[in-house]
Design a protein around this nucleic acid. Sequence first.
DNA 1: CAGAATCCAACCGGATACTG
DNA 2: CAGTATCCGGTTGGATTCTG
Lengths: 124, 124
Amino acid sequence: MRARVEEDTKGRRQVYEACLEPCAIERGMRIIGGKWTGSILWHLKDGPVRFNDLARMVGGASKKMITERLRQLEGQGLVHRDVVKTSPVTVQYEITEFGRTALGFLDELRKWTESLPADLPKNV
Amino acid sequence: MRARVEEDTKGRRQVYEACLEPCAIERGMRIIGGKWTGSILWHLKDGPVRFNDLARMVGGASKKMITERLRQLEGQGLVHRDVVKTSPVTVQYEITEFGRTALGFLDELRKWTESLPADLPKNV
DNA sequence: CAGAATCCAACCGGATACTG
DNA sequence: CAGTATCCGGTTGGATTCTG
């Protein structure tokens, strides 16, 4: 098996060697587990959202982060970018059909997180 | 609402302000989305695994990483550490009942990743 | 509005060597 | 075997400023 060279969620160069190839869990996490990535995708589930609105919805992430993640998601075909020629221009981000295939997992994650007891051991 | 100060998967200090509190997706990702975290948990699903065996199973991660993640998972109550007094000592890591509650969506993630077409747009 | 550009301290994580 | 300790270059991501 040849070594694969890819970019993960954060644009980091990842070299997957023969016997070091991460399992599906790890690969998946590298795709949608990056900081803010899942959250961004999730907030697009109900329809197109404009850049600044998205930034507000994903509260906590800087514009820089939102931009980087969106570019990545776009490059991966999970999100579609649409420029509306108003003045000033507005930009709509929309989840693609492919992107929607990840929502099932994200919803499971959401349910899991929300089910966590309030008195967790530590750090959870 | 007061600001919460916690540690995420990677032990980073995270300050969650009132209106900046991440959504469940993001919080969940901070718990099990860290590098190697999901993979480690996943590889414990079939029963206790010893340290070095785990390191091999999660191929690619250094011992340092395995150790750090295991300590974290242990502190969160997702994994239990058991020292067996052989000579030299062996250490077994076992997923807890609580930890098992995370396997559901991890399996969703696995299925999602494995379903990805071979000819993906980019970076996926 | 929707970014792009820059700065930079903090952190991450691999490599290596060592230990009981 | 199951770690710990240390080094250290690379990456990350927040803050800030600027633009069409």
